[in-house]
Nucleic acid binder design. Sequence first.
DNA 1: CTATAACTCTCAA
DNA 2: CTAACGTTGAGAGTTATAG
Length: 427
Amino acid sequence: MPIFALYDINNCYASAEKLFSPKLKDRPVVVLSSNDGCVVARSAEAKALKVPMGIPWFKMLDLARQHGIVALSSNYELYGDLSNRVVSVLRQFTPHLEVYSIDESFLSLDGFSHLDLEDYGRAIREQVLQWVGLPGCVGIGLSKTQAKLANFLAKKGLAGSDGVCNLLSMPSSLLDDLLGRIEVAEVWGVGRKIDAQLQSMGITTVKDLRDADPSMIRQRFSVVLERTVRELNGVSCLELEEFAPDKKQIMVSRSFGQYAYSFSELSDAVATYTSRAAEKLRSQDSMATALLVFIETNYFRQDEPQYHNSFRLTFPEATSDTRELVQYALEALRRIYRRGYGFKKCGVMLTEIRPKEAVQASLFSPAPGESRSDKIMSLMDDINGKWGRGAIRVAAVSAEHPWAMRRERKSPNYTTRWDELPVVLAK
DNA sequence: CTATAACTCTCAA
DNA sequence: CTAACGTTGAGAGTTATAG
């Protein structure tokens, strides 16, 4: 039987910020989403103050002032770099690992059952804490869903206080007792809708769901939730995905820091996002045959005129060339743009993605091998890799972006940018 | 009618 | 000083469309 461990960084973004800013120790810290919009991470102190997840920052200014809550813009460069460091430590503990998200990894502990798994979990936590500086918890179980659940118990201190929980060694009476006291919404895969439906059926705790009849669950819900039930019972249905498959769609979208009104502002944004999407596309050696562009006004201001539209366009031939993709995207934008609206958000989605070796060439396309376009694109990617994103770009992307997202409270990129390092030299 | 495409819903971090 | 509410991707299931 497989054994899974889930390692999860505690309050990931908030912990990352505290790591480099000792002044923040013991202070309530929150990290904000793009545009400094909503709270997406909270330190333990902020959670203790009941700061809700996802609350718009401007709605909690009073609370923040009252308690001296520190709010920071998200610094994804920093979190991404720290995340990579954590993963490299975790890899020392297992040959098979799945990076599930920026702050979570599943570790296969198959064949480790001769060890004391709780000791092993503690060793993992301590090593990450010592080498990277970030705190985390470890949950161990017979399936990914069990490992998630165990991690939850560890984080809440419901199964000991050392940040590790191993369901395999827990007496079943104790487990039943615990699961009977945890809301079913905590289960991985149970979101808002399914929770409401389960509640109405009298399934309110994790224990209720674990003990439900899988075939009934399949009938009333779906095969997905049926698998969840089986996984809760220790029957692994979801495998470790060590190697992330290529993306089937690539999306770049963002809200604007301030409204964009004119076609030229929007086309600038669309070209910018398309360029970024094309970079992602090339980084997995793929080509796309279609794209979708969408533009939106501000949903939250129903007093203002509303307009949302999108346009999907299929190309005559697959491409990964930023120049072509930008032309297509701007063509799509022309089809939907309307004057007189303040636009708050736009996005570009590349679809019908295939590996570049697998694309059907047209009758007139050049012979296989590295094309002129490929060479130009790799040159662009090299230059931007060395000198920073946007160092070389298509002309549709301007140098100044008045609509760029607000990020007024960003900490320095301590680990990835020499010039942002706040070095204090000897006098 | 069937196979596929397109769209909707739900979830997750 | 004021206004201010995220992003990206997957999979399942349903509906529309093409042949």
